[in-house]
């Protein structure tokens, strides 16, 4: 029994051809991979050539960047639970919660922009705490608990807004975040840049990041190495909730209004980006640069296809296809890595 186990472990993909990375990279053996940024470059170049008038403009670039900052930040949040081996299906609804609170509190209760934003962020983070406790302490499967939470929030949002859109009395301080520029770059893009920097640093350069990946790699081995697995799991959900809150505020700022139906549709694009992102940079592992690049691969793909005349339903089709492709690729990598 143990013999066969041993043998299967020793099957090294491409390992027989000597030490890797010396002359030519063995395609399956290497862990770093830049196919995703390459794909982004190819897509951008192709649409620039095909549609120089509509696609290749500074304004379009700004639009793509700032409108997709929301998805990218949401995806970076969803990344954390996935790293510890769980997932958070409530990120879309949680974005909606933050969106409706930040607009509604100002519009209906007359709160100032900073206060409304603070309450929204706290609420979204609390959702993360509850998700984390349900999963890590309550032992409830993440699929069930976060899906239930998602439905709960969606219902709560409709109740709070009475199903209507908050369009009046949105404070200037909120709208500025979505529309102003700094050094010629839209503010949402700056927010994304900060989020990328902080999450990348946390995950790649601190012990906390190592611990989160360790929990995702093997919960038992992590526990026996003295890590507080429940606490790390809860933390991952809190980051997810907080960033969903940030994404919701940015979305409110860009729309200049708060609609109760916005949130849930963001779930799939965010997950597609995280999964597609795992195929690049640190291949086979969910990672920050991959997630961000993947967000824009999908965004540019959809934007470009629309500009060359693709029908209006291209967005969900493209996103779904990207998610499925990514999931299949991730599975293949995982199988090769641990075969």
């Amino acid at each position: 029994m143990s013999l066969t186990k041993e043998q299967s472990v020793e099957v090294t993909p491409g390992g027989e051809s000597g030490p890797r990375g010396v002359v030519a990279k063995v395609p399956w053996g290497s862990l770093t991979d830049y196919s995703l940024p390459a794909m982004l470059a190819v897509l951008v170049a192709a649409f620039c050539i095909l549609e120089p008038q509509t696609f290749a403009t500074v304004q379009n670039l700004k639009t793509i960047l700032s409108s997709n900052s929301v998805v990218a930040i949401l995806a970076l949040g969803a990344l954390f639970p996935l790293i510890v081996g769980e997932f958070d299906l409530s990120v879309g609804a949680n974005l909606g919660l933050s969106l409706i609170l930040s607009t509604g509190l100002a519009s209906r209760s007359g709160l100032g922009a900073p206060e409304a934003i603070a309450v929204a962020l706290i609420a979204s983070s609390l959702v993360g705490v509850i998700n984390g406790v349900l999963v890590a302490k309550g032992g409830i499967d993440a699929f069930v608990s976060t899906l239930g939470m998602s439905s709960l929030i969606t219902g709560g949002v409709v109740w709070y807004s009475n199903g209507e859109t908050f369009a009046t009395g949105i404070p200037h301080g909120l709208i500025v975040l979505g529309r102003n520029e700094f050094l010629g770059v839209p503010l949402p893009v700056w927010f994304l840049a900060v989020t990328v920097a902080v999450t990348y640093y946390l995950l790649a350069a601190t012990p906390l990041g190592k611990y989160l990946y360790a929990v995702g790699g093997s919960r038992d081995a992590a526990r026996l190495s003295g890590l507080n697995v429940p606490l790390l799991t809860i933390l991952a959900f809190v980051v997810s909730g907080f960033l969903a809150g940030v994404a919701g505020i940015l979305q409110a700022a860009q729309l200049g209004s708060g609609s109760p139906s916005v949130g849930p549709s963001y779930l799939l694009p965010a997950f597609a980006a995280v999964f597609l992102g795992a195929t690049s940079f640190r291949r086979g592992a969910f990672n920050v640069p991959g997630t961000v690049t993947a967000t824009f691969v999908i965004a540019v793909g959809i934007n470009g296809l629309e500009s060359i005349g693709a029908p209006f339903y291209i967005a969900p089709v493209f996103t779904g296809a990207a998610l499925l492709t990514a999931a299949l690729a991730a599975r293949a990598f995982k199988a090769r890595r641990t075969a």
Partner: peptide, 28 residues
């Protein structure tokens, strides 16, 4: 199941306990 994290490198596995020792002035 308990001893190793299969999808981590040999080095990461060997130094998991002392990760914090290699983190100084904000960098690994």
């Amino acid at each position: 199941r308990n001893g190793v994290i299969l999808d981590h490198s040999v080095g990461e596995n060997m130094t998991l306990l002392e990760t914090r020792r290699y983190w100084r002035r904000g960098l690994m």
